[in-house]
Simulated assay, not measured.
Amino acid sequence: MPVIPPRPRHPPPDYVQNPYFDRAWPQHMYLNPSSPVLPTLQFPPGFNISTTPLITFRRVDLLLSTTELEILHREKHPEMYEEEGNFTLFSDEAVWSLSPTTYIEDLFLLPLPYGNYANLIVSTAGHWTTSMFSGYATIDGLISFFAEAMHAWATHTQLALSHDSGVLLPGGQKKNRNVLVRAYLPGHEDCHTHRSPTAQIPPMKWNWYNWGSIPEFNHVFQDLLANHSYPNIHFLPIDRPARLRPDAHATGDCLHIIAGAGVLEGWTEYVWHYTTWFLGGVEGE
């Protein structure tokens, strides 16, 4: 078997010294070659500790690139460009997004020894705001375009998965790869006035960003994936436990949930059970 040169590993950014470092930087988790659990593990043929990540994070704000969204929008809504000759879909707000060709075909579906991912987890519409999509004055029109864009995204994604040979398991079996769409979690207004979980989801008072409309964006995706045309893309409506936890935010941040509050840990356990038991079959079973 030929010796595979290790993929160069760049030192991770120091977010303490530079808190504004680009969060879109790809982050990989590898096995530690000196781990005492290594002898107890079974690996698929071709797995290489130096080059095969266990997990990879990429920031993709909109699920499609801005160029793809602009082309799609012009195709779906030519009247908006005819009525206003200077119409632009996006503002100059910073955005980090990629084409699904980049993060699905060129990353998620990578074969061994540089990849062997089984599941891709994405979330819905956290960055679909009227400040980002300044061509829309109201959120209702943006939600309609979101539905059109996610139909295009799901069609592209399912086609790529259908043509894929699958993830390789120890023993040489293969199983289908899957994409999980997690319902996005809106923030909690006045989160720091809460000191305990709530029995009901706190109502929005000011509708910061697009928080009050996040359930509508989530429903768009849930309805879309109820269609049997997307057998390898699954919607996970696991946002409610976190929506009952306005007390679980970090200081000065009413959007992101802190580790240790039980929310992220609960999501992780649920996703693990879902992918292991519900999606765990191999080809031929």
Rank of each mutant, 00 (worst) to 15 (best):
W96M: 12
W96I: 14
W96Y: 15
P100E: 07
T102S: 10
Y103S: 04
Y103A: 03
I104L: 09
E105T: 14
E105W: 07
D106R: 15
D106V: 12
D106G: 06
D106I: 10
L107N: 03
L109G: 05
L112D: 07
P113F: 00
N116P: 09
Y117P: 08
A118V: 12
L120R: 00
V122T: 15
S123M: 04
S123E: 02
H127A: 07
W128C: 07
W128F: 13
T129Y: 06
T129L: 00
S131M: 12
M132T: 05
S134P: 04
G135D: 00
A137C: 00
A137E: 06
T138M: 09
I139W: 03
I139T: 11
L142F: 11
I143N: 09
S144P: 00
F145H: 03
F146H: 05
A149S: 02
A154G: 11
T155M: 02
T157P: 00
T157L: 01
Q158E: 13
Q158D: 10
L159F: 04
A160D: 12
A160C: 10
A160P: 03
L161A: 11
L161M: 06
S162D: 06
S165T: 09
S165Y: 03
G166R: 06
V167D: 05
V167M: 06
L168W: 03
L168P: 04
L169Q: 14
P170W: 11
G172K: 03
K175Y: 08
N176Y: 12
R177Y: 05
N178M: 13
L180I: 06
V181A: 05
A183N: 02
A183W: 03
Y184Q: 10
P186D: 04
G187W: 01
G187Q: 06
E189A: 02
E189L: 01
E189S: 06
D190L: 14
C191Y: 10
H192Y: 13
H192T: 14
T193I: 14
H194K: 15
S196C: 14
P197C: 02
P197K: 13
T198K: 08
Q200T: 10
Q200D: 08
Q200P: 00
P202C: 04
P202R: 02
P203G: 11
W206Q: 13
W206H: 15
W206F: 14
N207H: 14
Y209M: 11
N210T: 04
W211Q: 01
W211F: 10
W211N: 11
S213N: 14
I214P: 02
I214L: 05
P215Y: 02
P215K: 00
H219I: 08
F221Q: 01
F221T: 05
Q222C: 07
D223H: 12
L224Y: 00
L224A: 09
L225P: 09
N227I: 02
N227E: 06
H228T: 14
S229D: 05
S229Y: 01
P231T: 12
P231R: 15
P231E: 11
P231N: 09
